[in-house]
Design a protein around this nucleic acid. Structure first.
Lengths: 339, 339
DNA sequence: TTGTAAGCGTTATCAC
DNA sequence: GTGATAACGCTTACAA
């Protein structure tokens, strides 16, 4: 009769129903050895009322949330969503939930998110920061929970890190274009004050050097952003003053913009101008022509970062690790692959 | 001296430092009116030790987590990531965190996730289910926290729901193709046992009817999946037996596959064959030619779902609402727009 | 206005 | 093995 109270059952409900103490009920539910009779009674009682332990209470007691956070610049960018995918998978395998946070690549937001970790609603954070400052290093050093980084902090930063070698990737792209017979290789970059922007420029110049090509700054154009529209505008400016036979673009989105600009000028890709992008996003397989792109290993890097983080959560004292994932050129029609 | 203990400060730390009771400290920190002197002391103490309230303790006490969950079939699908974006934004505006869960469109996984809500680690769930069963209805009815649905449950289901009208959208697509002068309008669908599959087929047939075109089942091909590869294969099968002057594709990914198949046959789009896709993903602006597509309002629907959910969390007794978002045709080069 | 104290639902340390 | 009981960190009657 008084059973009608179907407020969510707590451990107390189960214990009462099984006629044992709270402690015993807890033990059974946590798989601690008990007399078979209590085991049975508790298990049955729990099943009968559909008992599920309360996460907040558990967290409060255990100091473990079973959650990790992923903070990235932009949810809509395919580079990051592929990371979300692989982190979600690792998290799921480890019985963790995933909290998503979009920082809009805003340093202040990133820092305040790190500060928020003091609330301890997660066991750790995976952060991808486009523009790593010393404020980041300080904030992370004092963070309430472990942080794993996807990015390129200064050498010696004491944080678990997974680096991409985008400068090397850019060099490879240039070398590939050169190997395809291109000699006037232009470069459309994104903002150069960002880490990826400066690394890719370095890699581009290095590529020219390795191919024995002269550096020609009229072949370089800088976009306002790493987006399709910015890429298109930058490519248009470039084409107004020079006629390259190849364009290396700092990422796929910029490359799509460049593709559009070339099409508008009735230039055919790759016949007139070859294109290579970077990131190897899903979209690269979809354009016409399909886009040759340098895969920076985003999904892989994210997976590794998640693993580093979970390892550190289990073992806070372990040695700090830095892992580098090497880029891989994926050849498609926009340069190199036969149509 | 004994200050050296820099274990994360709790409310007790602050109270002690400010020389007031726990209760007073709590009041100040929660903005409850107090004597200015205590206000000052507590505020200063809190700042001094960098106090941040513990989320688990707060949740346990308040029965509010400040978290909502979004469970969707596939993190990598651009339709869903655009939803993630708008939900993340709403959540952030309301000071909520977002938990992401990928169900792989697996009914069992969806149901077990709903069951998990009993742990109460979130205040509510936004669920997108491709294939809504009565088991879903039951599970949601008995769920521990409110659920808002993105999908098309049977009429009369007592759940806050945001519907897309994809059948209507399909009809519009066909009518547009007809208005562009096309008369042999083919249809490449995804699996027809799914809700979207059957709705889009209905809409396609309705469109033919409204245009006074005869139904011709040789013009219909069904892919194994809603993906690029499946779309390409299905389109190839279609083109082997008929020569349409237009193809309506059940979603953008299928349309990209169809685009590839047409290109392979040296058919020009839209000159020889016009194409219309569905979902209006980011990718639609990137292909060549750009893709005319029916925007089912994913981002908008997700935003509304988030708002419905948050409203219900605040007000559990409010009337159940169903919102329908109407599709909108976005004309681009693959049919209709001038090059 | 302020302080005391009772919970929120768990887990873990004790005696028994 | 089992059962009281004390935390975990916070909010909120209720009393002063």
């Amino acid at each position: 009769m008084q059973d009608l109270q179907d407020a969510t059952p707590t451990l107390a409900t189960v214990a009462r129903l099984a006629n044992v103490s709270l402690a015993s009920a807890s033990r059974v539910l946590n798989g601690i050895k008990t007399n078979p009779e209590t085991l049975r009674r508790v298990t049955e009682a729990a099943a009968a009322v559909g008992y599920v332990p309360n996460a907040a209470a558990r967290t409060l007691r255990l100091r473990r949330t079973g959650q990790i956070a992923f903070a990235m610049p932009d949810v809509a960018n395919p580079v990051y969503t592929s990371m979300v995918g692989s982190i979600a998978q690792v998290a799921r395998e480890c019985g963790s939930r995933l909290i998503l946070h979009s920082t809009d690549a805003d340093v202040a937001d990133e820092l305040s998110f790190i500060e928020d970790l003091k609330q301890r609603y997660v066991d750790g954070l995976i952060l991808v920061s486009i523009d790593f400052t010393s404020a980041h290093a300080d904030a992370i050093a004092g963070a309430a929970v472990p942080v794993a980084l996807l990015g390129n902090p200064p050498e010696g930063t004491k944080i678990d890190t997974v680096r991409a070698n985008s400068s090397h990737g850019a060099t490879e792209a240039v070398k590939h274009l050169h190997a395809c017979g291109r000699r006037r290789i232009a470069f459309v970059n994104g903002p150069e004050h960002t880490a990826p922007g400066s690394a890719r420029r370095r890699g581009y110049l290095q590529g020219l050097r390795e191919c024995g090509l002269d550096r020609d700054d009229t072949l370089v154009e800088v976009g306002s952003d790493f987006t399709i529209d910015a890429g298109r505008e930058a490519a248009e400016r470039l084409l107004e003053r020079v006629m390259p036979d190849a364009v290396f673009c700092a990422n796929d989105l910029i490359a799509f913009g460049a593709l559009a600009a070339l099409r508008e000028r009735r230039l055919e890709v790759p016949r007139d101008v070859a294109i290579v992008g970077m990131d190897d996003t899903t979209l690269a397989r979809v354009t016409s022509p399909t886009l040759t792109s340098v895969d920076l290993g985003g999904a892989e890097r994210a997976r590794v970062a998640a693993e580093l983080l979970l390892a550190r959560i289990d073992q806070p004292k372990r040695r700090v690790r830095t892992v580098a994932v090497e880029p891989k050129l994926v050849v498609r029609e926009s340069c190199g692959a036969v149509l």
